[in-house]
C-alpha cells in the first residue's frame, strides 16, 4: 500500500514530501482532498528526472522518473516539524491517517494543497529583496474532526 508523508511547519521552505519512505523533490503542486463522503482526490505534479512535468494520482499511479533525494532534515530539525502520513490504496475506506506517527480517527475531511510557482517579474524582481516575493506560494492544510458530541472542529495540520 503506497504511503505519502508530508513533514512541515507550515512554511514551504521547510516542507518535505516522502513517498514510500523516500523524500522526493521537484514537486510543483500537491493536492490531497479526502472526505468521509467518498471524495478522494490525491494528485501530484512534479518535474521528473528528464525535466518533464508529470501529473499523477498519488495512490493509484506509478510515479515515473520521480527524483529522490536524501532526507533534508536532521533529527533535531524534524522534532520541530509536524509529520502527516497517509496510507491508502485510492479508496477512502482503506485510508489511514497518522499525525506524528499517531493514528487519527474521527476525521471528517482532509484538505491539503501546496503549490509553488516562480514569479517571473523580470526587472522588478531585482528590486525585491524578500525572497517570498519571487515565488508564488499556496499552502493550505486543514483537517476536520468530529468530536464525541458530533460537533465538527477544523484545525490546521502543520501549525
Amino acid at each position: 500500500m503506497p504511503t505519502l508523508s508530508i513533514e512541515s511547519n507550515g512554511m514551504l521552505e521547510k516542507t518535505a514530501v516522502y513517498y514510500n519512505g523516500s523524500q522526493i523533490s521537484g514537486i510543483k503542486e500537491l493536492l490531497v482532498n479526502i472526505d468521509e463522503e467518498g471524495l478522494f482526490d490525491c494528485v501530484i505534479q512534479y518535474e521528473g528526472s528528464d525535466k518533464k512535468l508529470y501529473t499523477k494520482q498519488i495512490f493509484t499511479d506509478t510515479l515515473t522518473n520521480v527524483r529522490t533525494v536524501p532526507a533534508s532534515f536532521s533529527e533535531e530539525e524534524a522534532q520541530l516539524l509536524q509529520l502527516l502520513t497517509i496510507e491508502s490504496d485510492g479508496d477512502v475506506e482503506s485510508s489511514t491517517l497518522f499525525l506524528n506517527e499517531e493514528p487519527l480517527d474521527g476525521v471528517v475531511s482532509l484538505y491539503l494543497h501546496i503549490k509553488v510557482d516562480k514569479n517571473k517579474d523580470g526587472i522588478s524582481s531585482i528590486f525585491k529583496k524578500k525572497q517570498y516575493n519571487l515565488i508564488n506560494e499556496t499552502f493550505k492544510s486543514e483537517i476536520t474532526f468530529r468530536n464525541e458530541d458530533d460537533s465538527l472542529e477544523t484545525e490546521d495540520i502543520f501549525l
Partner: peptide, 23 residues
C-alpha cells in the same frame, strides 16, 4: 549593483528552498 542584486536574489531563493521537496 543590478548584477549582484540579481545574483543575490537568485541564490537566496535557491538556498532557502534547498531542503524543501518543492522547487
Amino acid at each position: 549593483y543590478f548584477a549582484r542584486a540579481y545574483r543575490r536574489n537568485k541564490n537566496r531563493v535557491v538556498s532557502n528552498y534547498s531542503q524543501s521537496s518543492f522547487s
